[in-house]
Design a protein around this nucleic acid. Structure first.
Length: 468
DNA sequence: ATTCATGATTACTC
DNA sequence: GAGTAATCATGAAT
C-alpha cells in the first residue's frame, strides 16, 4: 500500500525526475476536456480509484471495469507513468541486490565436483580422481580393480548428477517461461517493465540454483562416502592365495641368506603371484605388496625363528627336490649327449628324490635338519649334502640323498660345469656360509641375489642357500 | 567370542 | 627411498 500511496501522491501533481506528469507524458488534452490541471487531476484520480477498488468488486464487474479502463483515453499515459515510477522505485530498492557475489560455499562445491571428475569434461576426470585418491592413501596406485570399481561408481554418481541437473535446469526453464508469459500477459493490465520481468527471472534462477546447490552438496557427500569406502577397501586385508604365498615363501627361504629381492625380482614375483592368483579370485599382487610381504616376513622370521623352522624345512625340501630334478636332468643330459663322459656308475633316478607329500618331505627334513640359529643348522657333514653354486651366483644347497655321494657330487659338478658351461660360476665356492643372520640379527652382510629367475632356470626352480 | 595369522600402515632410521 | 619395528585391522580357525 505504500507504493500505491506514493503513486497516488506522485500522480497528484508532484513532478517526477524534474518534470511534471503532464509534461513528461506530453499529454494532449483530450477532446472536449476543459484542459485545466484540476480537471486532469480529477480524471487520473478517478482512474486510480477504479484501479484500487477493482479487487473489491465481483469478477464480472471487475472484468467490465478492466475493459473500461483498458479503453480509457488516459490509459496509455498512465500506464507509462506507472511503469516509470515502478522501475525507479524498484531499482532504488533492489538495484543493489542485482549483482550477487558468488557464493563461496557454491564455489567450493563446484571446485570439488570438478576435481572429483563429476562435473567438467566427460573423460579423464574420474580416473584422475581415482589416481589421486589412490595416491592419497600412500599406497601404490596400480590396483586396477579397485580403480575400476571406483571409476564405475563415480560414473554412476556422475550420471545421476547430470540427469538431476538437467531436470532442474529444464524445470527452471519451464517455470521461467511460464512466469514470463504470465507477466507478459499481465503487463497488459498492470505496469510490468521488462526489467521487472528480468528481475523476476533472476529470482527464479536464484531459487533454482539453491536447489542445485543442494544437489551438488548431496553429490559431494556421495563422492566423499565413495572415496572413504574406496580408501577403506584398500586398507582391508585380503589373504594372498596359497600359491602366491608359496611362491613368495620359496623365494624367501631360497634366499634366506639375503632375502632382499631386487626391484626386478619383486616385479617378477608379483607377476608370478598374479598369474597364480588371477586363476583364483581375480586379484593381483603388486610390487609394493611383495615389498610388504618381504618386510613382514623378514621381521617375523627374525623375531621367531623357531616358529618358522618347520616352514623353512618344508621349503628347503621343495627346493631340494627341484634341484635334484635339475641335477638328474643334467646328468641324464650329459650321459646321452656326451660320449666322452661314460656312465660313471652314478645314476640318479627321479624316484630317489620323489617324496610323496609335503608331510613326508617335512618329516624327512625335520629329521635331517637340527639346530636353532637364524638359519637352518644342518649336520656338519659335508659328504651328506649336495652343495653347489647356483647358476646365477647364489649359493645353492640341495637335497640330502641319504648316501655318501661326495664323489658323485664331484663328478656331477664336473659334468654340469662342462655341460652347461658354467665352470667359472661353479668353481671356487662350495659350501655356503653358515648363518643367514649376522650377530646383530641383520641380513645385510650377506651376498645380494640378482633376480628371481636366472636365464637358465626353469619356471619352478629356486635357489637355496639354506646353510648349515 | 577368542585367538592367531597376516597384509597394510606408520614413524622412524640409515 | 628402502628397510625396520611397532601397530592396526581383518580373515580364518578354534
Amino acid at each position: 500500500m505504500d507504493e500505491q500511496a506514493r503513486i497516488m501522491q506522485a500522480l497528484g501533481g508532484v513532478s517526477l525526475a524534474g518534470h511534471s506528469v503532464q509534461g513528461s507524458m506530453g499529454l494532449q488534452p483530450p477532446h472536449g476536456h476543459d484542459g485545466t490541471d484540476d480537471g486532469r487531476k480529477q480524471d487520473i484520480g478517478d482512474i486510480l480509484h477504479q484501479i484500487m477498488t477493482i479487487t473489491d468488486q465481483s469478477l464480472d464487474e471487475a472484468q467490465a471495469k478492466k475493459h473500461g479502463l483498458n479503453c480509457h483515453r488516459m490509459k496509455p499515459a498512465l500506464f507509462s507513468v506507472l511503469c516509470e515510477i515502478k522501475e525507479k522505485t524498484g531499482l532504488s530498492i533492489r538495484g543493489s541486490q542485482e549483482e550477487d557475489p558468488p557464493d563461496p560455499q557454491l564455489m567450493r562445491l563446484d571446485n570439488m565436483l570438478l576435481a572429483e571428475g563429476v562435473s567438467g569434461p566427460e573423460k579423464g576426470g574420474g580416473s584422475a580422481a581415482a589416481a589421486a585418491a589412490a595416491a592419497a592413501s600412500g599406497a601404490a596406485s596400480d590396483n586396477s580393480i579397485e580403480h575400476s570399481d571406483y571409476r564405475s561408481k563415480l560414473t554412476q554418481i556422475r550420471q545421476i548428477y547430470h540427469t538431476e541437473l538437467e531436470k532442474y535446469e529444464q524445470a527452471c526453464n519451464e517455470f521461467t517461461t511460464h512466469v514470463m508469459n504470465l507477466l507478459r500477459e499481465q503487463s497488459r493490465t498492470r505496469p510490468i517493465s521488462p526489467k521487472e520481468i528480468e528481475r523476476m527471472v533472476g529470482i527464479i534462477h536464484r531459487k533454482f540454483s539453491s536447489i542445485q546447490m543442494q544437489l551438488k552438496q548431496s553429490t559431494c557427500e556421495a563422492v566423499m562416502i565413495l572415496r572413504s569406502r574406496f580408501l577403506d577397501a584398500r586398507r582391508k586385508r585380503r589373504n594372498f592365495s596359497k600359491q602366491a604365498t608359496e611362491i613368495l615363501n620359496e623365494y624367501f627361504y631360497s634366499h634366506l641368506s639375503n632375502p632382499y629381492p631386487s626391484e626386478e625380482a619383486k616385479e617378477e614375483l608379483a607377476k608370478k603371484c598374479s598369474i597364480t592368483v588371477s586363476q583364483g579370485v581375480g586379484s593381483t599382487i603388486t610390487v609394493s605388496q611383495v615389498s610388504n610381504w618381504f618386510g613382514n616376513k623378514r621381521i617375523r622370521y627374525k623375531k621367531n625363528i623357531g616358529k618358522f623352522q618347520e616352514e623353512a624345512n618344508l621349503y628347503a625340501a621343495k627346493t631340494a627336490v627341484t634341484a635334484a630334478h635339475a641335477v638328474a636332468a643334467a646328468v641324464q643330459n650329459s650321459q646321452t649327449n656326451s660320449p666322452t663322459t661314460p656312465n660313471s656308475g652314478f645314476q640318479m633316478k627321479d624316484e630317489e628324490f620323489q617324496l610323496d607329500s609335503a608331510e613326508s618331505k617335512n618329516t624327512l627334513l625335520t629329521n635331517m635338519f637340527t639346530g636353532s640359529s637364524g638359519s637352518f643348522n644342518l649336520p656338519n657333514s659335508g659328504d651328506m649334502f649336495l652343495s653347489m653354486q647356483s647358476l646365477n651366483g647364489d649359493s645353492y644347497q640341495g637335497a640330502q640323498v641319504g648316501v655318501n655321494v661326495q664323489s658323485q657330487v664331484d663328478t656331477l659338478r664336473h659334468v654340469i660345469s662342462q655341460t652347461a658351461g658354467y665352470s667359472e660360476a661353479l668353481g671356487g665356492n662350495t659350501m655356503y656360509s653358515p648363518n643367514c643372520l649376522n650377530a646383530n640379527g641383520g641380513w645385510h652382510d650377506a651376498m645380494t641375489p640378482s633376480s628371481v629367475i636366472s636365464p637358465t632356470e626353469g619356471p619352478g626352480s629356486v635357489h637355496s642357500d639354506t646353510s648349515n
